[in-house]
């Protein structure tokens, strides 16, 4: 009970903020709750199948299989797989984090996991159509080209900057959360 309370302390604090808004700024309260409610519904529609698939992946896919296709020695296959997994996925970037953790847990390489996160954030295939219609094709193609470059740069630099100790720390978190 005490640990549950501790886990939800920031949430409870924010509920108090909303309560204060309700009395002090009813307009802002109404608008904020409406937006929060919409995002909550989105989250609840996106996350359940992702977590179920991750659970199934965890019990059925052997570590060796993941290492072979997305591990350190997987080369271009791993890079392309990570890129397409990220680009084809549904949901905002926060839904990518548990997926990334599962990949790490099963032996996917650090660089590939970073590529997946990069692709998930900027190269979603259905989004591109939409971007082209609202921002124009030149903007879309330029941004896409630059972002693919950016994904690679961020993945390579992060992989270099994070030393063995940092990575060990991340793997501890992975074990805790996976």
């Amino acid at each position: 009970m005490k640990s549950t309370l501790k886990k939800y302390r920031i949430f409870l604090l924010l509920v108090l903020v909303y309560l204060a808004l309700f009395f002090l700024k009813p307009d802002l309260f109404a608008k904020s709750t409406e937006i929060t409610w919409k995002s909550l519904l989105e989250m609840l529609s996106v996350l359940p199948p992702i977590f179920i698939l991750l659970g199934l992946l965890d019990v059925w896919v052997k570590r060796e299989t993941m290492v072979k296709y997305m591990g350190e020695g997987s080369g271009w296959i791993g890079i392309v797989l990570a890129f397409f997994l990220g680009s084809a996925a549904a949901g905002p970037l926060y839904a990518a984090f548990p997926v990334a953790v599962m990949l790490l847990k099963k032996g996917g390489s650090f660089t590939n996991v970073l590529i997946l996160i990069g692709a998930w954030s900027t190269t979603k295939i259905p989004m591109l159509l939409f971007e082209a219609s609202s921002m124009g094709l030149p903007f879309t193609l330029l941004r896409l080209g630059l972002d693919i470059l950016g994904i690679a740069i961020i993945a390579i630099v992060s992989n270099k900057v994070l030393n063995a100790k940092d990575k060990a720390e991340i793997y501890t978190l992975v074990e805790k959360n996976g």
């Binding site: 937006i35 929060t36 995002s39 179920i52 959360n177």
Partner: peptide
């Protein structure tokens, strides 16, 4: 076991998610 793991990892991150949603609501408003 898979379902149990799925629930556990969801429940584990839920407090942070809920907090983020509440902050997001105020920001965007």
């Amino acid at each position: 076991m898979a379902l149990k793991k799925a629930w556990k990892s969801f429940e584990n991150i839920l407090p942070q998610f809920l907090a983020v949603l509440l902050i997001l609501g105020i920001m965007l408003a």
